[in-house]
Every structure is written in structure tokens, then in C-alpha cells.
Nucleic acid binder design. Structure first.
Lengths: 121, 121
DNA sequence: TATTCAGGTTTCCGCCTGGTAACCTGGGGT
DNA sequence: ACCCCAGGTTACCAGGCGGAAACCTGAATA
């Protein structure tokens, strides 16, 4: 038996790099899509699910909670029946929108074929 | 025995979303750091390793190959001895720099504590 | 002959991430 | 009495993704 050492041994080397730190957030699956979806105004949980069909409720919840904890989005429960929950970008979150716009822009121009590797002399 | 189905079954559902597609690239570990490191001019493999100490050669190679295949960086072998290899951003790659700048900007302002989650009623 | 140096490649292995599916809560409608 | 809806939560599970370490090539240098 090889003795598994838990990796939570020390509190973790600080990223100390704002780039790495921020990528730790927006790097999660569907995170940028959520922010993108919120750029035009507040949106409810189930609306986000429609905007981003492949996201599962589990992951969507996880992303929204992370973004809320980091101050990127707000969460507001409306006392309707059934209660609905609105998510919106904070000012901080709004700062990410131009970044994501640039990413989308590049996305449009990307060559889609990783197979192009083999074809070039 | 539960019958493992290979996932390469069909050529893959097209991302069809430029955002998701582009995140597929820059989402890889250290990718943004590489682009960030190249923003001020061309850089050799071992210089990048110095710029980004925690990156392993395996991963650095993988990232550079991907970025090259997608037209984000160029790779040029200089016939010195030993031969050195210079990587540089393409025009397309340069488009990502402002995006990454915005990400860095947000990174500076992020609250660092995910543990803040538990403390709230 | 051995070493160094650049720029990788290869193998192995563990973790974390994300997908799937089932379940939950509470009020309102019929 | 029952179901539905919103907005989740939970348990389980696979595999991809990245870290670590060892190895490789060819020319120049000691």
C-alpha cells in the first residue's frame, strides 16, 4: 500500500499573480458564458439554463456561487411564488465584459481545425 | 463489466459558439501567461520557462503547439548552435492582449477568500 | 571522451472537474 | 389530495489534464 498523502497539507502556495488568480475563476466551465449572458441585464436561474443549454444545474449553481463569492455577480431572491432568483453583474463583473468581447472576437477568427497540424510541411 | 464506450464515436458536437471555442484554447493551464509573456516581443522556450517558473516543459510545449495550430503564435527556429526557437504573437494573438489586460485588471480587485462562503448566514 | 546546452518527448499517475440522474422544499392552482 | 414550478442539492463516476521525472538529439566545447 503506497500511502496516499493528502494534498491539503499546506494552505496552498499563493497564486500571487492576479492573472492566474482571475483565470482560476473565469476558467471554470461555462463561467464566461454566464457573464456574457448577464451583460445585457439581470437574468434568472432558469433563464440562464436556457441561454446556455448544455450547462447542468449543478455546475451552474457552482459557477454562480463562486462568482458571487468573488464579487462578480449579485444574487437577489424575489418574494414571488414560486420565488425567483435574479443574478446580475456587479461593477467588477462589468469590467470583464470587454475582455470577453475581445475573446469572442478572436473566437470568430480562429481556425477550427487542430488537424491542420498534419497537413503543413 | 460495464462496457466502456469510446467517446471518439462521432466527430464531436461543434462548439458553434466562438466564445466557448476560444475559451477552449486560452482555458488551458498557463496559456494566458504565455501570451502575456509574449506581449512585449518574441521569446525563446527557455525564456518562457523562466517567465513562468511553475510550468513544466511538457505543458509548455503542448500550449505552444496548440497556439501555433490555432494561429495565435508563430514558431521560428534560429540556425544557431544549439538551435534556439523563438515564439511570437501573430496579429491574431495580439488581439488577445487587451482581453488579458482586462482580466489582470479584475484579478487585482478580486477578493481572495473563497472561504468567505462559510462565514455568511 | 564527456559534458553542456536548447528544446523538447515519453511515461506514469493522481486529482479535480464536470456530467448524469435522482431527490428536495414550499406555495399555489385544480 | 395531487402535481407543478423554481431553484436548487446530493451521490456517484469517468476521464482529461496536468505534475514529476527520466530520457533524447546534435553540435560545440573542454
Amino acid at each position: 500500500m503506497p500511502l496516499k498523502v493528502r494534498k491539503n497539507h499546506s494552505p496552498k502556495p499563493p497564486p500571487s499573480c492576479p492573472l492566474t488568480e482571475c483565470m482560476g475563476i473565469i476558467g471554470g466551465a461555462w463561467t464566461v458564458n454566464v457573464i456574457w449572458s448577464l451583460r445585457a441585464g439581470p437574468r434568472r436561474f432558469s433563464e440562464l439554463r436556457v441561454d446556455i443549454p448544455p450547462v447542468s444545474p449543478k455546475v451552474l449553481t457552482a459557477r454562480l456561487r463562486e462568482l458571487e463569492a468573488r464579487g462578480v455577480v449579485t444574487r437577489e431572491v424575489k418574494p414571488t411564488s414560486p420565488p425567483s432568483v435574479e443574478y446580475a453583474l456587479t461593477d467588477l463583473g462589468a469590467e470583464l465584459v470587454p475582455a470577453i468581447e475581445a475573446i469572442v472576437e478572436v473566437g470568430h477568427k480562429l481556425k477550427g481545425a487542430p488537424d491542420a497540424l498534419v497537413a503543413n510541411g
